[in-house]
């Protein structure tokens, strides 16, 4: 589904991604874990062309997409749910959802558009109740749901999720993770970035560990969960508890 080879990107003189390679197969949940500033957000934003790739290749469904514009990538079925949600604060909840389907709107009949909305409401009933409310006045959890719902309106095949649980209460985080699993069951492929490495590896099939712009480790989720280095660095276990 997605194949990234030797990808480099950065900001001005700052080189952030130093030759990233990774791949995702259809139907997988893949997670990337890494410390703050490792370049995870930069990677996702480069994948959807918000940041220019300096070299390397990105192949999505057998097509090179490293040189095309963000809206074309959405049309092809790859969408990013950004870190910090970025809902349209001054627009209503429903308008946010409608705009999520911006690239599809002229290809959908009224009924199909309503079906698409109903699918989102079945995942997040609260969004239906809050339809006319300004998105900026939603709670953090509701905004995250809206950000996910908005992305789903474009009918994506591959969903890139950047730290969906940040700043949310544990109960809501559980909901969001349950939703991510449901999305996979419904046919989506997911690339998940998380501070909460344990939870992410809990639902993922495979994972990559990123350090200062490089992939330093990859493997099945179980292997990573049991890896000593990963446990020390990202799962909050110190030497002692590992020894025990």
């Amino acid at each position: 589904m997605l194949k990234v080879r030797s990808l480099q990107a950065g900001y001005g003189k700052l080189k952030v991604l130093k030759s990233i390679s990774l791949h995702i197969s259809p139907g997988e949940i893949v997670t990337i874990i890494g410390a703050n500033g490792a370049g995870k957000t930069t990677l996702l934003e480069t994948l959807v062309a918000l940041i220019d790739a300096r070299s390397g290749s990105i192949v999505f469904n057998n097509e090179n997409i490293e040189n095309i514009s963000p809206e074309k990538i959405v049309k092809k079925g790859c969408t990013l749910i950004p870190e910090g949600r970025h809902v349209f604060n001054t627009l209503s909840v429903k308008e946010n959802l409608i705009l999520g389907g911006y690239t599809k709107i002229h290809h959908r009949s009224k009924e199909q558009q309503q079906e698409a909305l109903d699918y989102i409401y079945s995942l997040f009933p609260i969004l239906n109740e809050r339809g006319t409310q300004l998105a900026g006045t939603l709670s953090g959890g509701e905004q995250q749901m809206l950000a996910i719902g908005r992305a789903l309106m474009s009918d994506p095949k591959l969903i890139l999720l950047d730290e969906p649980s940040i700043g949310l209460a544990p109960l809501i985080v559980k909901d969001i993770f349950a939703t991510i699993q449901k999305l996979r069951e419904n046919g989506n492929t997911i690339l998940l970035i998380e501070q909460n490495a344990k939870a992410a590896l809990g639902i993922a099939d495979r994972g990559y560990v990123m350090e200062t712009g490089q992939i330093v480790l990859e493997g099945s989720a179980d292997d990573l969960l049991n890896n000593n280095d990963v446990q020390r660095a990202y799962l909050g276990k110190d030497y002692k508890s590992i020894d025990e």
Partner: peptide, 23 residues
């Protein structure tokens, strides 16, 4: 209208507008 809403979306959050496929 969709176009009008898309323009309001740009004024609300440019990054999100790009991510929705709005040029």
């Amino acid at each position: 209208t969709t176009l009008g809403r898309a323009m309001r979306a740009c004024s609300s959050n440019k990054k999100a507008a790009w991510l929705c496929g709005i040029n």
